[in-house]
Write a protein that binds this DNA or RNA. Sequence first.
DNA 1: TTCTATAAGTTAAACGTTTAACCTTCCAGG
DNA 2: CCTGGAAGGTTAAACGTTTAACTTATAGAA
Lengths: 346, 346
Amino acid sequence: MAATIKDVARKAKVSTATVSLVIHNNDRISSETKTRVKRAIQELNYHPFRSARGLASQKSGNLGFIVTDDHFSRSEPFYTQIFLGTEFQARESEYYVLLTTIPSDFNERENTPRFVLEKNVEGIILAGKIPHKLIQKLDNYTIPLVFIDYYFSPSQHPVVMIDNISGGLKATQHLIDCGHKDIAFIAGDLQHPSISERFQGYKMALQSAGIPFREELTQYDEPYPAREQGYLAIKKLLNRKVQFTAIFACNDAMAIGIVQYLKEKNIPVPSAISVIGFDDVEANLSLDPPLTSIRVPKVEMGIQAVKIMTEILTRKHTGPRKLLMPVELVIRGSTCKRQGEVSLYK
Amino acid sequence: MAATIKDVARKAKVSTATVSLVIHNNDRISSETKTRVKRAIQELNYHPFRSARGLASQKSGNLGFIVTDDHFSRSEPFYTQIFLGTEFQARESEYYVLLTTIPSDFNERENTPRFVLEKNVEGIILAGKIPHKLIQKLDNYTIPLVFIDYYFSPSQHPVVMIDNISGGLKATQHLIDCGHKDIAFIAGDLQHPSISERFQGYKMALQSAGIPFREELTQYDEPYPAREQGYLAIKKLLNRKVQFTAIFACNDAMAIGIVQYLKEKNIPVPSAISVIGFDDVEANLSLDPPLTSIRVPKVEMGIQAVKIMTEILTRKHTGPRKLLMPVELVIRGSTCKRQGEVSLYK
DNA sequence: TTCTATAAGTTAAACGTTTAACCTTCCAGG
DNA sequence: CCTGGAAGGTTAAACGTTTAACTTATAGAA
């Protein structure tokens, strides 16, 4: 069997307590003893048994990661990237991440994630839209929560957010810079804070350019922002026979659906209509034309969330409750200068 | 604090041992006692503390999942899907999955994954190509391993493989059925068992159709099968001025690169050249034209690996050492009937 | 000299389960 | 009536750490 702390203690001729203190770098131990113990640890290739540590210290060494199943298995690897970021930073901080997906229609009677019940995680990171019922359940346990890309107002938990307003601004401004004036906005689920903030950015950009906001150029009654919903939304918008030369889609998934519909209707992108998305999942796809978008630092968001969490767990967290991650315009082939007046309707 | 086994024992007026036996459904306990204890558990909302269990039983309740970093953050969500499958089945079996990525150039001096050292996993699932040095290290610990989509010959560990030969056969046969005779094969890294098996299937299909195998129609000296390598490979192949009307790419990633190059050179797909891939990541992309491919049950592979692992851990594993997952032809827009003789070279 | 403070450990209990070994009680078989 | 064994528990040690409380030695202050 593998060596235990007793073996180390015996070898270094100290008590097991001393070994433990050395491992935790306690300064009550002289440096001579420390090196002696450390050598014994080396020679025996000793590593503390996680479960024993967990029991004695009441700390599992794990973090939980919760995301809804549809978010995680989405085509666009958005939350996958975030998860990867948490995994990366967790390793730095000597944690492991236990992932669990929950049904997006999570209800009252559903089970609390097992890792909470079994006290197998010290804190939980929640990514994307999470059912309120679940948040309420989790709040009954005194376990720190950190949100990513979602929050709901009364909540006092730290949250890592995309700077959506600025993103919406940049996206819209880019279209304006390209000479567009009639800029449509397409989204799903304005409940979601991220989406409504992007909408805000859109309106702000219009306003500061002196372009009046026109409700008839918006389409946002889809239940959620995915490809088919983009496809449906642009269809509805075009049925309204309004004239426009550019679209700001609330995310790349919808933008993809939009481009697909436009292609089918032989409306050229970007010459007739420029399309800009949000999230920049492009790198992973390879669309035609490549999508202009707002880059979101997905991996970095996961990293930051874990950093905040470890600060909380070591009582060092003094930072802001809300961390805004900067975004960046990435110009590709789906937007271009306005090409005069192209009538969309025959 | 949350209830412990002692609280339950007190409430049900039994010893803690009895509670434990009830939890494990031991038949030494009468059914009356069982229901009494179970009620107490319910009322106290008791759940055993994972770490305490881990210490007493020497079982962490976790499985490890190892994949190289470049595999996992690949554009095509192939291994992500497999991971999702393991997560899903692990939940069924009351396990959690600890993911760790390792550098693909893992070497001797690199650290053994921490979850092994700390005895934090009961078994490890390895997905995709894994550096031999690491496998050797893991073999020094007596911990069960299950491979997915990779194996190396001397190894005696169970493995979940794609039925690559049959897939290669089906892919090639489809092209033959479309009237193609001059069918190129493009791959990277023939070392990888999956790839060389697909190649085998290709040759078998040609043979049984009476089409001679021609080395000059193959191109497989790229180091690994990704998009850029597909792009480079088709370029090399075309430089050779050979005539062909169809390509079997060893995976979708390469196929995507191939289609991209052909587009740039204005060689229409599929009318001039039909392209078939392998893996079927299409559902997640949305290519133009949509890619004909061989569907691989990615999630299911993860599920099966965990099933095998749990069988091993409960000593019930009698199944085969090698599980072959069936594949399926999915016909989309990148392949079509041969359109007479189209000269590729002006 | 005695007292106090500090440095550098050690002792032993505690963490919450599991499980081998043991203990009753009851009943059937001889 | 005794014996053996099954049924249904209980006792208590063990799992490998952590950590509060205690000990001892040494040095400097009074």
